[in-house]
């Protein structure tokens, strides 16, 4: 097992291995998402409180979950890269940030579209989760801005890793403070998404969507890590052989 991980961390092996598993991730993810979309939109009964508007959670919850997930992946791989100086993990951190930002954006947009029929406004500052997501998006933007401002890849990796770790310490504090802040004033009552009382016909599509989105996210992440690896290793012999034999984009 350890040997396998060690081998995987070597760039050429990762490059070849990831090419094989990306289609599987994408395939399994797509099947799950297609099932979840169909079941969520047409098979699941409508919510007694929210009517059919609750169906938005089938895209909102996976997006919100992945926006947090991407940040953890980013911070953990940044830490690994900083401590053990593994180049591949810096590539993972660099690849996770734009994807995380996209999913955060998606969570924000779907959350606000869900809020329109529920609260009557597109944006409700009283909702702690929407506000947290917005701050999350700012964190991603800061991270990517720092990365873009530093030309040297090695330096950009390390500097942005420090920022990611400082951000990771701050994320729970930010969530806590936003929760506290919104609990102070009596906003519109927030309807719980899901909860334990969710019937099975509603829950299974949601689980399928979360799992499917995770697989698709994995495929997208691996694809971006491949690009990062290729760029970082552009002077290596294996990349030259790969490019000159015309293996093409794989």
């Amino acid at each position: 097992m350890w040997k396998f991980i060690h081998k995987l961390a070597s760039p050429p092996h990762f490059y070849r291995f990831s090419a094989k598993i990306i289609p599987w991730f994408a395939g399994v993810g797509s099947i799950l998402v297609i099932y979840g979309t169909y079941a969520g939109l047409f098979l699941a009964p409508s919510d007694y409180q929210q009517g059919d508007a609750f169906r938005i959670i089938y895209v909102h919850v996976p997006a919100a979950y992945l926006s947090m997930m991407a940040y953890s992946i980013m911070a953990v791989s940044a830490a690994i890269g900083l401590i053990w100086r593994i180049k591949l993990s810096h590539a993972v951190a660099a690849a996770a940030a734009p994807l995380g930002a996209w999913f955060t954006f998606l969570a924000l947009v779907t959350g606000s579209v869900w809020g329109k029929p529920m609260w009557g406004t597109w944006w409700e500052w009283g909702d702690p989760r929407l506000t947290s997501e917005l701050l999350m998006l700012f964190l991603y933007i800061g991270y990517m801005a720092l990365r873009a401002a530093i030309d040297d890849t090695v330096k950009a990796d390390k500097a942005s890793a420090v920022l990611a770790l400082v951000g990771a310490v701050n994320v729970p504090i930010i969530h806590f403070s936003v929760e506290w802040w919104s609990s102070l004033h009596q906003g519109p009552t927030i309807i719980r998404e899901g909860g334990p009382a969710m019937p099975v016909e509603m829950l299974y599509p949601l689980l399928a969507m979360i799992l499917g989105f995770t697989f698709i996210f994995g495929a997208l992440l691996l694809g971006r890590v491949r690009t990062e690896v290729l760029f970082r290793e552009r002077r290596a012999r294996w990349v030259r052989e790969l490019v000159l034999t015309g293996a093409g984009p794989g």
């Binding site: 997006a63 579209v113 329109k116």
Partner: peptide, 16 residues
Amino acid sequence: AMGGYGAYVWSCFGIT
């Protein structure tokens, strides 16, 4: 039509 919420639900899935 999604019980009147069609525009919201479909726009969310569309943007996703």
